[in-house]
Amino acid sequence: MNDSADVDSPTSSYINVALNRLVCLILFSIFIIPSTLLALYICYWICRLDELRTRLTNHSIIFIFIIGLIQETCEMPFLLAFLRSGRVPFETYRFCKFWIAFNYSLNTSLLFLNAHLSVDRYLFIIHPNILNKYKTWIHYAPMATFTLIAIIYSCSAVLFYPCEEHFSYVDQLCGGSCYQLEAAIGTFDVIFTVYMPLSCIIFFNVLLCMRVMLQRRRMRQKNVWKKNVGMLGQLLSVSAIHTIVWLPVTIVLVLAATSERPSDLLIELQTSFVLINIIYLSVLGNPVVCVFALPEIKQKMRLLIDNRRRRMMSDTKQNAIHPMTTNRAVIMMR
């Protein structure tokens, strides 16, 4: 392995990579400030509200929020620097290794945690007795286990797999890791880190929606319909954003893998990292989703908006009364 890297990248005939980089830079620069401020607001209330941290249904969502916050605060500056200049921020072999391992670990962790959230929420609504009885093994342990598996697997594959790296400092994530080009480990990697968790998310979300709708009458008789629909909405809000941004990548990978002769467009989509930028939308949108998924945060946000609205209405009334008082005083003086 060499510290030198290829500085030239192939010119795309289908995708305008420079335009894509400019559009992403503008969008990410606009949304990163409100996203960060909202994330800090959520962190404040997570630290302040004991009931938010102790509620069992909030644990997975808070864990997903923390992983997303780490990615937003630690990796987004590298991405913005690359999008601004068109080159990797630190053109060294070690930095490329670090950036790739960091990105892969967090993305895999988010997918695994979303898959766990889907199963966990299904048990909360359909089989609450089983979850309460074995919550240590079904609820708490998987969150830590899946995160550790994602980090250990991604870091081991990037840092220790025996292949020769050829990094490109003009490509996002330095062009990716060399192990993904190996047929066996590359195929396993896509199935294990993308297909499996994404399939689990979609399956349990669809299954839970069907079960809730089919058991609507019985749930209404037990007065749990509104509560379960609320928990279902929380799950869908968190899972939907990650599913939507990962589906384009997944579809391209499936089409490329099942085609005997993949088109040039498919090959360019795989190698240009155009679709990878879409995934960062879920990182920036993660705080917004968590506001709706955490009832305590949503209530605080609603109170904040209501108080702000009342102040604006009060100021408007005072401004309307003040000219009338002034006019009356002028008339009396005359």
Rank of each mutant, 00 (worst) to 15 (best):
Asp8Leu: 13
Asp8Lys: 08
Pro10His: 12
Ala18Leu: 09
Ala18Tyr: 05
Ile26Trp: 12
Leu27Tyr: 11
Ile30Trp: 09
Phe31Pro: 07
Pro34Trp: 14
Ala39Pro: 05
Ile42Arg: 02
Leu49Asp: 12
Leu49Ile: 05
Asp50Arg: 15
Leu56Val: 04
Thr57Cys: 14
Asn58Leu: 12
Thr73Asn: 04
Glu75Asn: 01
Glu75Asp: 04
Pro77Gly: 05
Pro77Asn: 08
Phe78Thr: 10
Leu83Asn: 01
Arg84Ala: 13
Gly86Phe: 04
Phe90His: 08
Cys96Pro: 05
Lys97Pro: 02
Phe98Pro: 11
Phe102Pro: 00
Leu113Thr: 04
His116Thr: 04
Leu117Cys: 06
Asp120Ser: 03
Tyr122Gly: 03
Phe124Met: 15
His127Gln: 15
Asn129Cys: 12
Asn129Tyr: 04
Leu131Glu: 01
Met143Leu: 14
Phe146Arg: 11
Phe146Tyr: 07
Ile151Thr: 13
Ser156Asp: 06
Ala157Met: 14
His166Trp: 09
Phe167Asp: 02
Gln172Lys: 02
Cys174Met: 03
Gly175Gln: 10
Gln180Val: 10
Gln180Thr: 06
Ile185Met: 07
Phe192Arg: 13
Phe192Leu: 10
Pro197His: 03
Leu198Phe: 00
Leu208Asn: 09
Gln215Phe: 05
Arg218Asn: 15
Lys226Glu: 15
Lys227Met: 10
Gly230Glu: 15
Gly230Pro: 00
Ser237Tyr: 01
Ser237Asp: 06
Ala240Leu: 09
Thr243Lys: 06
Leu247Val: 08
Thr250Ile: 08
Ile251Glu: 09
Ile251Asn: 00
Glu260Leu: 13
Arg261Ala: 04
Arg261Asp: 15
Arg261Asn: 13
Leu266Val: 06
Leu275Ile: 01
Leu275Arg: 03
Leu281Val: 11
Leu281Ala: 08
Pro287His: 05
Cys290Thr: 09
Leu304Thr: 09
Ser314Tyr: 10
Ser314Phe: 05
Thr316Lys: 09
Gln318Phe: 00
Asn319Glu: 14
His322Ser: 14
Met324Lys: 06
Thr325Asn: 11
